[in-house]
């Protein structure tokens, strides 16, 4: 359960978020969409306490994100940032192992290792496990970072553009896995997505931001209409339905 109340945020003189309030219940996939600079990443970083809260309140599972000890929160929420730079020279297995830090404080137990191996297999990086992260391609590194966030094994998962650099098959695989863990383990997943059709096919709910405000919020079927999309992106987009799922022909 994520509760965002009256959150505003400014980077210097630029107001990025204006009085945003949201409630995201437990379990399910929520997609944040919107044009560049709409405040999606800022909102996600605020929920994941990577940015200090300037105004408003945010609770995750009833815990205020700005006042709860970091370790407590790290057992409840994992966040994947947009820029996946890894500062130190690490092998992929070590990197994914860091996902267990909130639970084991650095001393990996057998259970931790099992989590790591599962995450490595789940995101198709098992074959890369002994490679150094800085020798990977962008998409491979992205998968390693997602595996690390998954290894953290938290009920809440925040992903900022998880599909970055992924080829279409890995992108589909990731979205299926998000869907499966939301359904089977009741995980709460919030992802910033630029590919609106992935949101349409896999999300339970889409929240659209524009210029720091929530301008649309609802199930993909209801939200993805030419009228709503023109409010969000400033241009009408053609929407077709295939097997009941809306498909936005944004590339035409």
């Amino acid at each position: 359960m994520i509760l965002v109340e009256n959150v505003s945020h400014a980077h210097g003189p630029n107001r990025v978020l204006h009085d945003v309030s949201l409630a995201i219940p437990r379990g399910g996939v929520t997609a944040l969409i919107g044009p560049n600079g709409a405040g999606k990443s800022t909102l996600l970083s605020l929920i994941g306490r990577l940015l200090p809260l300037q105004a408003g309140r945010i609770h995750v599972d009833g815990l205020p994100v700005d006042a709860t000890p970091g370790r407590e929160l790290a057992k409840r929420l994992a966040i994947l940032r947009q820029d996946g730079a890894v500062a130190s020279r690490l092998r992929v297995r070590e990197l994914v192992g860091f996902g267990r830090f909130p639970h084991s404080r650095g001393r990996l137990t057998a259970e931790d290792r099992a989590h790591v191996e599962r995450a490595l297999a789940a995101f198709d990086v098992m074959g890369l496990a002994d490679r150094f992260v800085d020798t990977l391609s962008g998409g491979q590194r992205q998968r390693a970072l997602i595996a690390m966030a998954f290894a953290q094994d938290t009920p809440v998962l925040l992903l900022d553009e998880p599909l970055n650099n992924l080829d279409m098959l890995h992108a589909r695989e990731l979205m299926r896995r998000l869907r499966a863990s939301a359904d089977a383990e009741a995980k709460t997943i919030v992802a910033v997505l630029h590919d609106i059709n992935h949101a349409a096919a896999y999300a339970d709910r889409i929240i659209a931001l524009r210029e720091g405000r929530v301008v649309a919020d609802g199930a993909p079927c209801d939200l993805l209409t030419p009228e709503t999309l023109s409010v969000v992106f400033g241009q009408p987009l053609r929407v077709e339905r295939i097997d009941g799922t809306p498909v936005v022909l944004h590339h035409l």
Binding site: L50, L73, A74, R81, V86, F101
Partner: peptide
């Protein structure tokens, strides 16, 4: 602090995400 140092080497944001103050 050796394990915390390992995590800190990842950078500020990943470290915070993993529960480092």
């Amino acid at each position: 602090a050796r394990h915390a140092l390992d995590v800190a080497a990842l950078g500020a944001d990943p470290a915070v995400s993993l529960g480092i103050d």
